[in-house]
Design a protein around this nucleic acid. Sequence first.
DNA 1: GTCTATAGATGGATAGAC
DNA 2: GTCTATCCATCTATAGAC
Lengths: 186, 186
Amino acid sequence: MKEKIKQSAIKLFYKKGYFATGMRTLANAVGIQKASIYHHYPSKEDILMDIFRTTMIDLQDMLRTCLDEASSTMEKFQAAIKGHIIFHIERKEEVIIADSELRGLTADNYKEIIQMRDDYEKEIQRLLKEGVVEGIFPEMDINVISYAILTMCSAVPLWFKKSGRLSKEEVADIYTAMILKGLARS
Amino acid sequence: MKEKIKQSAIKLFYKKGYFATGMRTLANAVGIQKASIYHHYPSKEDILMDIFRTTMIDLQDMLRTCLDEASSTMEKFQAAIKGHIIFHIERKEEVIIADSELRGLTADNYKEIIQMRDDYEKEIQRLLKEGVVEGIFPEMDINVISYAILTMCSAVPLWFKKSGRLSKEEVADIYTAMILKGLARS
DNA sequence: GTCTATAGATGGATAGAC
DNA sequence: GTCTATCCATCTATAGAC
């Protein structure tokens, strides 16, 4: 039942936004009374925080798997980009919540999530640095380039249509090709 | 006074979000009673809509100026990217509201803003197409590439610090260089 | 574990005095 | 053009029965 509440919350927070979704609306979607929600979650923010934590942990796990399965820096980088995009398409609702509802978190929760996000960014930046050291990438502004890459890839679910012309793999390949070309040594 | 309400609303909607900002909070920020706001705006959504319209119109005007002042397709494209990024840094609060509070708009207002956004996207896509026809860009998936470019450039205000290491022009130049290299004919 | 009932605050919006 | 006062709906959360 806790999971059912969470799944309904994901759909509603995605569609209407966290502050615009009331506990009554959420309860109706689940098929229970709003008071019953408080048996599973101590507060509305805890539901949001549960979504944040699951999403960030799964994202971290996905990255770790991608890195473990690749050998060279170039392969790791390509796998990270592709994995990031595919995760963001498959988990569209959750990642859009994670990117747009940070203001729903109070100070301590906010810090925890920002920390996880920073750790993830640093992994990508570490890959870029390794690529520069190995000479497969030219000298670059690591921070700016990493933000450019991460923000464009995280935004894919904002326009991607599952029933559209391209599969998620095709989109990931187009993005990866453009990024690698943009970073290539001249 | 209407302008003062609008400016306070921009700051609050940016900081706390549209739904999380109450009319009382807004009125306090302006220094009046909440009932007084209704002398200037018929509803809360009309304040949001005013912000949306101003932002989108100014963005369109900026693009038009960039295109008029450049001659070749390549110059127009570069000017458009640079102008887009600098606008998004200078108007940080408004563009972040425009990108995250669309759910605060009812159907008719929503349609109007989406139409303006689509028109803007089409201008960028038209530039890319011209570049392909002229042979300065290789064949590409125009839609996907245009989304990649627009989303990464629109996200700059999410991480850019005015007091940081780089000026907005420097960031715009780094982005433009990476994008052009990513699009270059091989 | 879910329910009914309700507390207590706050939401957007309006009426009418000045 | 701003104010006080107020309407009514909704909000998050709790109490206590079953």
